[in-house]
Amino acid sequence: MAIVHAVVLALALVALVFLPCAVALFICADGVAARIRRRVREHRDSRALHRLDRTFSEQSISLAELDEHQPSIQQIAADLRRLDRQRFGVATRSKVWHAAVLLAYDDRLRLASRCLGVCEHLETLEGVDLEIERVRVEGELEAAGLTLRPAAPRHQDH
């Protein structure tokens, strides 16, 4: 009987010692998982960039040819207005759809910035910093004369 009590006491002490470790591991698991996902994404992106670089080095493509296929600033502005409506409308229904719309919107913001000579850092930022940069770039583009959102209709009092 004393052996059973000793084993139970030993197991209780082991549980008491490892319980805080298990709780800490559970709490930190999200951060660890996020870091692993980010590293996998970075590795996948670097492999894709390496393949793209190898493809471009094997083929001779001139920059003039690439510029011919760039949409006009009017088309970019129309795309930005459409994507802006979508990111606050239909894109709120699905996280995947929302992420796709934001990627397309940021891509068009970069194109418009390049066309109008506005400095942007949308590719290098994440999270709240990306949101702030997006708002800053929108302001710079509007200051440069690009209309991103139609004017709100005025209601007349009767």
Rank of each mutant, 00 (worst) to 15 (best):
R37V: 02
I73V: 14
E140D: 13
Y105T: 02
R85W: 07
R134Q: 13
A6Q: 14
C119F: 07
R93H: 14
P150Y: 01
A48F: 14
H69P: 00
L103P: 00
A100K: 02
R82M: 11
R37P: 01
R108N: 07
A48T: 12
A100I: 09
L146C: 11
E140T: 03
L49V: 06
V128A: 09
H155K: 06
A64M: 10
H98Y: 06
V128T: 14
R110W: 02
H158Q: 10
R44T: 10
S72K: 04
R47P: 01
C115A: 11
L66T: 06
F26W: 13
F88E: 03
I73K: 01
S60Q: 13
E68Q: 09
L80M: 10
A24G: 03
V7K: 15
L9N: 12
Q70D: 10
R41G: 04
I36T: 13
E126K: 08
A78S: 13
H98W: 07
L66D: 04
E123V: 05
L49N: 09
R134K: 11
A77V: 02
F88T: 01
Q86G: 02
G117V: 14
S94T: 03
P153R: 08
I61S: 03
V96C: 03
D84I: 03
I73M: 03
D79Q: 13
A2T: 14
H43M: 02
H5K: 06
A143M: 13
